[in-house]
Protein backbone atom coordinates (compact mmCIF):
# COMPACT_ATOMS: atom_id res chain seq x y z
CA UNK A 1 0.00 0.00 0.00
CA UNK A 2 2.37 2.62 -1.19
CA UNK A 3 -0.27 4.60 -3.04
CA UNK A 4 -0.87 8.24 -2.37
CA UNK A 5 -4.00 8.65 -0.30
CA UNK A 6 -3.64 12.36 0.41
CA UNK A 7 -6.68 13.24 -1.68
CA UNK A 8 -8.71 10.62 0.17
CA UNK A 9 -7.49 12.09 3.45
CA UNK A 10 -8.77 15.49 2.39
CA UNK A 11 -12.22 14.04 1.68
CA UNK A 12 -12.25 12.17 4.99
CA UNK A 13 -11.38 15.37 6.81
CA UNK A 14 -14.13 17.29 5.10
CA UNK A 15 -16.78 14.83 6.26
CA UNK A 16 -15.32 14.13 9.67
CA UNK A 17 -17.87 14.01 12.44
CA UNK A 18 -20.86 14.26 10.07
CA UNK A 19 -23.53 11.65 10.60
CA UNK A 20 -24.10 9.05 7.92
CA UNK A 21 -21.09 10.19 5.95
CA UNK A 22 -19.95 6.91 4.39
CA UNK A 23 -21.91 7.22 1.14
CA UNK A 24 -21.01 10.89 0.52
CA UNK A 25 -17.36 10.06 1.19
CA UNK A 26 -17.39 7.17 -1.28
CA UNK A 27 -19.18 9.40 -3.81
CA UNK A 28 -16.55 12.10 -3.41
CA UNK A 29 -13.76 9.57 -3.82
CA UNK A 30 -15.37 8.15 -6.91
CA UNK A 31 -15.86 11.61 -8.40
CA UNK A 32 -12.14 12.11 -8.07
CA UNK A 33 -10.80 8.70 -9.00
CA UNK A 34 -13.56 7.41 -11.21
CA UNK A 35 -13.99 4.23 -9.18
CA UNK A 36 -13.57 2.70 -5.75
CA UNK A 37 -10.51 0.47 -5.68
CA UNK A 38 -9.90 -2.30 -3.22
CA UNK A 39 -7.01 -0.41 -1.66
CA UNK A 40 -9.24 2.63 -1.16
CA UNK A 41 -11.81 0.45 0.60
CA UNK A 42 -9.08 -0.89 2.88
CA UNK A 43 -7.76 2.59 3.58
CA UNK A 44 -11.19 4.08 4.32
CA UNK A 45 -11.99 1.09 6.51
CA UNK A 46 -8.90 1.64 8.64
CA UNK A 47 -9.36 5.38 8.89
CA UNK A 48 -13.07 5.32 9.68
CA UNK A 49 -13.04 2.16 11.79
CA UNK A 50 -15.73 0.61 9.65
CA UNK A 51 -15.26 -3.06 8.71
CA UNK A 52 -14.25 -3.60 5.08
CA UNK A 53 -17.18 -5.97 4.67
CA UNK A 54 -19.58 -3.16 5.52
CA UNK A 55 -18.00 -0.79 3.02
CA UNK A 56 -17.98 -3.51 0.35
CA UNK A 57 -21.62 -4.10 1.19
CA UNK A 58 -22.46 -0.47 0.54
CA UNK A 59 -20.34 -0.19 -2.62
CA UNK A 60 -21.89 -3.27 -4.19
CA UNK A 61 -25.44 -2.37 -3.14
CA UNK A 62 -25.63 0.90 -5.06
CA UNK A 63 -25.49 0.85 -8.84
CA UNK A 64 -23.48 4.06 -9.06
CA UNK A 65 -20.36 2.72 -7.38
CA UNK A 66 -17.80 1.07 -9.62
CA UNK A 67 -15.11 -1.34 -8.53
CA UNK A 68 -13.30 -1.10 -11.86
CA UNK A 69 -11.72 1.93 -13.58
CA UNK A 70 -14.21 3.68 -15.85
CA UNK A 71 -13.77 5.33 -19.22
CA UNK A 72 -13.08 9.03 -19.56
CA UNK A 73 -16.67 9.61 -20.71
CA UNK A 74 -19.60 7.70 -19.28
CA UNK A 75 -22.45 6.91 -21.65
CA UNK A 76 -25.64 6.20 -19.73
CA UNK A 77 -28.30 4.46 -21.75
CA UNK A 78 -31.75 5.07 -20.26
CA UNK A 79 -33.73 1.94 -19.51
CA UNK A 80 -36.93 3.73 -18.53
CA UNK A 81 -40.34 2.58 -19.72
CA UNK A 82 -40.76 5.24 -22.37
CA UNK A 83 -37.29 4.55 -23.75
CA UNK A 84 -37.95 0.82 -23.72
CA UNK A 85 -41.15 1.32 -25.70
CA UNK A 86 -39.22 3.62 -28.07
CA UNK A 87 -36.68 0.85 -28.78
CA UNK A 88 -33.69 2.17 -26.87
CA UNK A 89 -32.11 -1.25 -27.47
CA UNK A 90 -31.39 -0.27 -31.06
CA UNK A 91 -29.65 2.88 -29.77
CA UNK A 92 -27.49 0.82 -27.46
CA UNK A 93 -26.65 -1.51 -30.32
CA UNK A 94 -25.58 1.46 -32.42
CA UNK A 95 -23.36 2.72 -29.60
CA UNK A 96 -21.73 -0.67 -29.08
CA UNK A 97 -21.30 -0.97 -32.85
CA UNK A 98 -19.63 2.41 -33.17
CA UNK A 99 -17.35 1.81 -30.20
CA UNK A 100 -16.62 -1.72 -31.42
CA UNK A 101 -17.63 -3.23 -28.09
CA UNK A 102 -18.80 -6.81 -27.85
CA UNK A 103 -21.86 -7.78 -25.83
CA UNK A 104 -20.71 -7.89 -22.20
CA UNK A 105 -17.85 -5.41 -22.64
CA UNK A 106 -18.52 -1.94 -21.37
CA UNK A 107 -15.31 0.07 -21.58
CA UNK A 108 -13.43 0.75 -24.81
CA UNK A 109 -9.87 -0.50 -25.11
CA UNK A 110 -8.51 3.06 -25.20
CA UNK A 111 -10.38 3.90 -21.98
CA UNK A 112 -12.29 6.72 -23.62
CA UNK A 113 -15.87 5.52 -23.15
CA UNK A 114 -17.77 3.36 -20.71
CA UNK A 115 -21.31 2.33 -21.63
CA UNK A 116 -23.82 1.50 -18.92
CA UNK A 117 -27.54 1.05 -18.61
CA UNK A 118 -29.22 3.23 -16.01
CA UNK A 119 -32.66 3.55 -14.50
CA UNK A 120 -34.92 6.24 -15.95
CA UNK A 121 -33.20 9.56 -16.65
CA UNK A 122 -36.53 11.35 -16.44
CA UNK A 123 -36.57 12.79 -19.96
CA UNK A 124 -39.31 10.40 -21.04
CA UNK A 125 -40.95 12.77 -23.47
CA UNK A 126 -37.76 12.83 -25.52
CA UNK A 127 -37.25 9.09 -25.54
CA UNK A 128 -35.07 7.32 -26.44
CA UNK A 129 -32.53 9.17 -24.35
CA UNK A 130 -28.86 8.76 -23.44
CA UNK A 131 -26.67 10.84 -21.17
CA UNK A 132 -22.99 11.35 -21.83
CA UNK A 133 -21.28 12.67 -18.71
CA UNK A 134 -23.90 15.22 -17.61
CA UNK A 135 -25.21 16.05 -21.06
CA UNK A 136 -28.53 14.58 -22.18
CA UNK A 137 -29.34 13.63 -25.77
CA UNK A 138 -32.93 12.93 -26.73
CA UNK A 139 -35.14 11.80 -29.63
CA UNK A 140 -32.32 9.63 -30.87
CA UNK A 141 -32.14 7.37 -33.87
CA UNK A 142 -29.37 4.81 -34.37
CA UNK A 143 -28.07 6.94 -37.27
CA UNK A 144 -27.49 9.91 -34.96
CA UNK A 145 -25.13 8.03 -32.66
CA UNK A 146 -21.83 8.26 -34.60
CA UNK A 147 -22.23 12.04 -34.96
CA UNK A 148 -22.82 12.45 -31.23
CA UNK A 149 -19.97 10.21 -30.14
CA UNK A 150 -17.52 11.93 -32.47
CA UNK A 151 -18.04 15.15 -30.48
CA UNK A 152 -16.23 13.59 -27.53
Amino acid sequence: MDQDFSSVDKILQEYEGKKGNLIPILQAIQRQKGYISKSVIRYVSEKMHIPMAEICGVVTFYAMFHLEPQGEHIIKVCKGTACHVADVDSIKEAILDFLKLEEGENTTADGKFTVMEVACLGCCSLSPVIMIDNQTFGQLTPDAIPGILRQF
Binding site: K19, G20, N21, L22, I23, P24, L26, Q27, E54, G57, V58, F61, Y62, A63, M64, F65, V118, A119
Partner: peptide, 26 residues
Protein backbone atom coordinates in the same frame (compact mmCIF):
# COMPACT_ATOMS: atom_id res chain seq x y z
CA UNK B 1 -29.06 17.37 0.47
CA UNK B 2 -28.29 13.68 0.33
CA UNK B 3 -27.44 12.40 -3.09
CA UNK B 4 -28.69 8.92 -3.90
CA UNK B 5 -26.33 6.33 -5.29
CA UNK B 6 -28.57 4.43 -7.66
CA UNK B 7 -30.92 2.06 -5.85
CA UNK B 8 -34.61 2.06 -6.68
CA UNK B 9 -35.58 0.49 -3.35
CA UNK B 10 -34.38 3.67 -1.59
CA UNK B 11 -37.65 5.30 -2.63
CA UNK B 12 -39.19 3.15 0.11
CA UNK B 13 -39.14 5.24 3.27
CA UNK B 14 -37.36 2.87 5.64
CA UNK B 15 -34.75 2.00 2.99
CA UNK B 16 -34.27 5.69 2.28
CA UNK B 17 -33.50 6.36 5.93
CA UNK B 18 -31.02 3.48 6.02
CA UNK B 19 -29.33 5.04 3.01
CA UNK B 20 -29.14 8.49 4.67
CA UNK B 21 -27.49 6.77 7.61
CA UNK B 22 -24.83 5.53 5.20
CA UNK B 23 -25.91 1.91 5.05
CA UNK B 24 -27.20 -0.45 2.39
CA UNK B 25 -30.68 0.75 1.55
CA UNK B 26 -32.64 -2.22 2.80
Amino acid sequence: IKEGAGAFVCGEETALMQSIEGKRGM
